[in-house]
C-alpha cells in the first residue's frame, strides 16, 4: 500500500474506495435486517442513495448559516480523503487518529449549521460522546509501546517480524473495534442518529449535500476498517484486505443487530468504563515492556 501512484490512479483508488465503503455499509444494513428476520434493502442500497441524492433538488434552509452549511460538507470529504491518502502512503497513524477525532467537529458543524433543533441535538450528542475516542488513544499508545513507531509502514514491518498485533495486543484491538462500532449506523452507540432526532445531525442536509455526506460515510468506513486491519493484522494483498473488511463488517453487523441503542447517558458511561479498563491495560503493558 506504500507504492507511489499517479494522479489518475489516486483518484481512481479514491472513487473505488468510496464505492466499496458504501457497499460495506449496504452489507452491514442487509445483515442487520436478516439477523432481525426482516428482508432488508439490497446491499447496494447506500450506493443508490448516494446517486439518488446527487440528482435531487438541493436547497439551503433559510435559517441556516449558509457558508458553514455547505463548507462543512466539503471539509467532511476533504478530511477523509486526506486520511485515505495517509493510509495508502503508509503515513502516521496519529494523523488518521486526529482526522477521526475531527470528524466529531464535522458532525457538530452539520448539526448546528442548519438551525434545526433535531440537527442541533444530534450535533450536541456527537460532541458529548467524545469519550468514545479515548479508547482509541489508548490503543494507539499501546501500539506505540510495542512498535516504537506510529508510522503505518513501520507497524506493518514490525508485524512481518513479530506476527500480528491482534494476538499480542488483543485488548487494544477490542478497544479499536468498539471505536469503529461507535461510528457504525444502527449500533448501540449511534445516539447521534437516533430516531427521536429524525436523522440527527444530518436531518436538514438534502440533495447534493446529503450525497456528499454519503461519500464521506463510504470513505470513512473504508478507511477505518482498512486501518484496523493494517494495524492489527499487517500488510495484506488487496483480495485479503477486502475479505478482511467484509469479515469485520459481519462482526459489526452482529454486534449492532443484537444490541439495542443505548440512551446518551448509558452510551457515554460504557465508553468511559472501557476507557478506564484500557488505561489499566496500557499501564500494565508499559510496566511489562519497560520495567
Amino acid at each position: 500500500m506504500t507504492s507511489r501512484l499517479s494522479g489518475t490512479d489516486m483518484i481512481a483508488e479514491l472513487v473505488l474506495a468510496t464505492i466499496f465503503g458504501l457497499l460495506l455499509l449496504g452489507i452491514h444494513r442487509k445483515l442487520i435486517a436478516r439477523i432481525q428476520r426482516r428482508p432488508g434493502p439490497p446491499v447496494w442500497q447506500e450506493i443508490l442513495h448516494m446517486l439518488k441524492f446527487s440528482f435531487k433538488t438541493t436547497w439551503v434552509p433559510l435559517t441556516a448559516s449558509r457558508t458553514l452549511f455547505v463548507g462543512v460538507v466539503l471539509i467532511a470529504i476533504g478530511i477523509w480523503t486526506a486520511a485515505f491518502y495517509v493510509l495508502v502512503s503508509g503515513g502516521s497513524l496519529l494523523v488518521i487518529l486526529g482526522i477521526y477525532m475531527l470528524h466529531k467537529i464535522v458532525e457538530h458543524g452539520f448539526g448546528l449549521s442548519s438551525g434545526s433543533p433535531y440537527g442541533k441535538y444530534g450535533g450536541v450528542r456527537s460532541v458529548i460522546s467524545a469519550a468514545s475516542e479515548i479508547p482509541l488513544f489508548v490503543s494507539v499508545a499501546v501500539i506505540a509501546v510495542y512498535t516504537h513507531s506510529l508510522d503505518l509502514s513501520s507497524i506493518m514491518q514490525y508485524q512481518q517480524v513479530y506476527g500480528p498485533l491482534l494476538f499480542t495486543a488483543f485488548p487494544a484491538a477490542c478497544a479499536m473495534f468498539l471505536v469503529i462500532l461507535s461510528k457504525m449506523p444502527f449500533g448501540p452507540f449511534s445516539i447521534v442518529e437516533a430516531k427521536e432526532l429524525v436523522s440527527g445531525y444530518k436531518t436538514e442536509h438534502f440533495g447534493i449535500w446529503r450525497a456528499g455526506l454519503e461519500v464521506c460515510n463510504g470513505l470513512k468506513s473504508f478507511v477505518l476498517l482498512a486501518v484496523f486491519l493494517t494495524v492489527f493484522i499487517g500488510q495484506l494483498t488487496l483480495p485479503w484486505l477486502l475479505t478482511g473488511m467484509i469479515i469485520l463488517v459481519v462482526l459489526l453487523a452482529f454486534s449492532c443487530a443484537v444490541t439495542p441503542m443505548m440512551s446518551p447517558f448509558d452510551s457515554v458511561t460504557i465508553q468511559m468504563v472501557v476507557t478506564g479498563l484500557m488505561l489499566v491495560y496500557a499501564m500494565a503493558v508499559l510496566v511489562v515492556m519497560h520495567p
Binding site: G109, L112, S113, V124, A130
Partner: peptide, 21 residues
C-alpha cells in the same frame, strides 16, 4: 476535554454555529 464536556454541553447548543464550533 472530556469529562468536562458536561459543563460545555450547554455551551455547544448556544446559537451561532460558526463560533460555537
Amino acid at each position: 476535554m472530556a469529562p468536562f464536556y458536561a459543563a460545555k454541553a450547554e455551551m455547544f447548543r448556544a446559537p451561532g454555529a460558526p463560533y460555537v464550533i
